[in-house]
Design a protein around this nucleic acid. Structure first.
Length: 267
DNA sequence: ATGGCCATCATGGATGGA
């Protein structure tokens, strides 16, 4: 089973780019963030034609998440970890015996901003939600846009980013708290490299992608039982190239494929 | 360089992204 996470930065603006990747890679599960549309505006027909059914949790203009699957989904949850906050940032479903949780973590804007405080509260609520929803013995994958670069090796210029939003100690501590509970950062199971092939997001401004100025902020967190089935995790940098790309690249977790080469890179 | 780029919105400058 392959589970892809991708912040598409508007599904309507990105429909063709998403279809291109999906047709080529055919992931079993596709977790999307930043739909930037309401449920009725989501391109369900496009995904049906590609062989997927989609559960969406949309919102006008901002946020919005969806899980699209080639396999049957059940037990769909929406509107967590802070129900009723009007922000569509969490959706989860059972797929192939795995609890797949798709998150669009609050960006935070800037350390000290109200949005940053909300980010930390949101991450605290996420921790509580996880602890109430699952145990470390369950088969759980939490994936999505975490808006956190966990370590300096995930940042193109750690000195320039030191203490900044996406890299600040308080948010990194919250990421570590999820690991302490029982999750593993799947990408780091298979890759110890730093630099451009370990990044998932590049700023549109100043040709950040072309200059290798990226961060790794999109992740799969997996419990031990899922880790035992994991054979790889790769970033598809090719999706960041070409006409009107998202500023994020898709990241794919590979399960139950013992012949998959874990050093696979999509340049 | 207190910026740059991009998507959205009862369409044009504000908002949010990261």
């Amino acid at each position: 089973m392959r589970i892809t996470t991708w912040n598409v930065n508007s599904i309507r603006a990105r429909a063709h780019r998403v279809a291109e990747v999906v047709e080529r890679d055919k992931p079993d599960v596709l977790c999307l963030q930043e739909l930037k549309c309401q449920d009725h505006q989501f391109p369900h027909e496009l995904f049906e034609d590609l062989g997927y059914s989609c559960e969406t949790f949309g919102q006008k203009t901002y946020n919005g998440v969806a899980i699209c699957s080639r396999l049957p989904m059940s037990g769909v949850s929406r509107d967590f970890p802070i129900p009723g906050d009007g922000q569509s940032r969490g959706i989860a479903a059972m797929v192939g015996g795995v609890r797949v949780v798709n998150l669009y973590v609050v960006n935070g804007k800037q350390v000290g901003h109200d949005y940053y405080d909300y980010k930390l509260r949101w991450l605290d609520a996420l921790q509580a939600w996880v602890e109430g929803d699952a145990t470390p013995d369950d088969d759980v994958v939490i994936c999505g846009d975490f808006n956190i670069a966990p370590a300096d090796g995930d940042v193109w210029d750690p000195a320039r980013w030191e203490g900044e939003n996406l890299c600040s100690p308080p948010e990194r501590e919250r990421f570590q708290r999820l690991l302490a509970w029982g999750f593993t950062d799947a990408f780091r199971v298979f890759h110890d490299e730093v630099g451009r092939y370990a990044h998932t997001w590049w700023d549109f401004r100043g040709n950040g992608f072309g200059r290798g100025r990226g961060l790794r902020i999109d992740h799969h967190l997996i419990t031990e039982s899922v880790k035992a089935r994991a054979n790889g995790c790769y970033v598809d940098r090719s999706a960041r190239k070409g006409i009107k790309p998202s500023d994020h690249a898709p990241v794919t977790l590979v399960l139950d494929e013992p012949d998959f080469d874990p050093k696979t890179l999509r340049i």
